[in-house]
Amino acid sequence: MPNTPRTPRLDQLEKAASRLRPIEREVLLLSAREGLRYDGIAERLGISSEEARGHLADALYRLDRELERQARPWWKFW
């Protein structure tokens, strides 16, 4: 089976995700890939549902900011 070419957008997403804190990345992956809700993520990681919700919110915010940063040239930030 041939390898599927990677799209630039996927590469950007992976680069942005690599800049997340480990707990944020783990919570994001559990939510996105495994479809777990806050309580499932909390149980899997041994944290509270509120912590899972907070980590997911932080991860999504940081991911969005990093993707925005990648999309704009450095001189457009001023």
Rank of each mutant, 00 (worst) to 15 (best):
Met1Lys: 10
Met1Leu: 05
Pro2His: 05
Pro2Asp: 13
Asn3Met: 09
Thr4Met: 07
Pro5Trp: 01
Pro5Ala: 14
Pro5Asp: 02
Arg6Ser: 14
Thr7Glu: 06
Pro8Ile: 07
Arg9Pro: 02
Arg9Ile: 12
Asp11Ser: 03
Asp11Gln: 07
Asp11Arg: 13
Asp11Lys: 12
Gln12His: 15
Leu13Asp: 10
Glu14Gln: 14
Glu14Val: 11
Glu14Tyr: 02
Lys15Met: 08
Lys15Arg: 12
Lys15Trp: 03
Ala16His: 02
Ser18Asp: 14
Arg19Ser: 14
Arg21His: 03
Arg21Trp: 11
Pro22Ala: 11
Ile23Thr: 07
Glu24Lys: 05
Glu24Thr: 01
Arg25Asn: 02
Glu26Gly: 00
Leu28Lys: 01
Leu28Arg: 03
Leu28Thr: 02
Leu29His: 08
Leu29Phe: 08
Leu29Lys: 04
Leu30Pro: 00
Leu30Lys: 01
Leu30Arg: 15
Leu30Tyr: 06
Leu30Thr: 12
Leu30Gln: 07
Ser31Asp: 12
Ser31Phe: 03
Ser31Gly: 14
Ser31Pro: 04
Arg33Val: 10
Glu34Arg: 15
Glu34Leu: 13
Arg37Glu: 15
Asp39Leu: 07
Asp39Phe: 14
Asp39Glu: 12
Glu43Lys: 12
Arg44Val: 13
Leu45Pro: 00
Leu45His: 03
Gly46Glu: 02
Gly46Trp: 05
Gly46His: 04
Ile47Arg: 05
Ile47Phe: 06
Ser49Glu: 12
Ser49Gly: 12
Ser49Asp: 15
Glu51Ile: 00
Glu51His: 10
Arg53Trp: 04
Gly54Lys: 09
His55Gln: 10
His55Ser: 10
His55Trp: 10
Leu56Gly: 08
Ala57Trp: 02
Ala57Asn: 06
Asp58Asn: 13
Asp58Met: 07
Asp58Lys: 15
Leu60Glu: 15
Leu60Ala: 09
Tyr61Gly: 10
Arg62Lys: 12
Arg62Glu: 09
Arg62Ala: 00
Arg62Gln: 09
Leu63Asp: 03
Asp64Arg: 08
Asp64Gln: 06
Arg65Tyr: 01
Glu66Tyr: 01
Glu66Leu: 00
Glu66Lys: 06
Leu67Ser: 03
Leu67Asp: 07
Glu68Ile: 02
Gln70Phe: 03
Gln70Asp: 00
Ala71Trp: 08
Ala71Gln: 05
Arg72Phe: 03
Pro73Lys: 14
Pro73Ser: 15
Trp74Pro: 09
Trp75Ile: 06
Phe77Ile: 08
Trp78Ser: 14
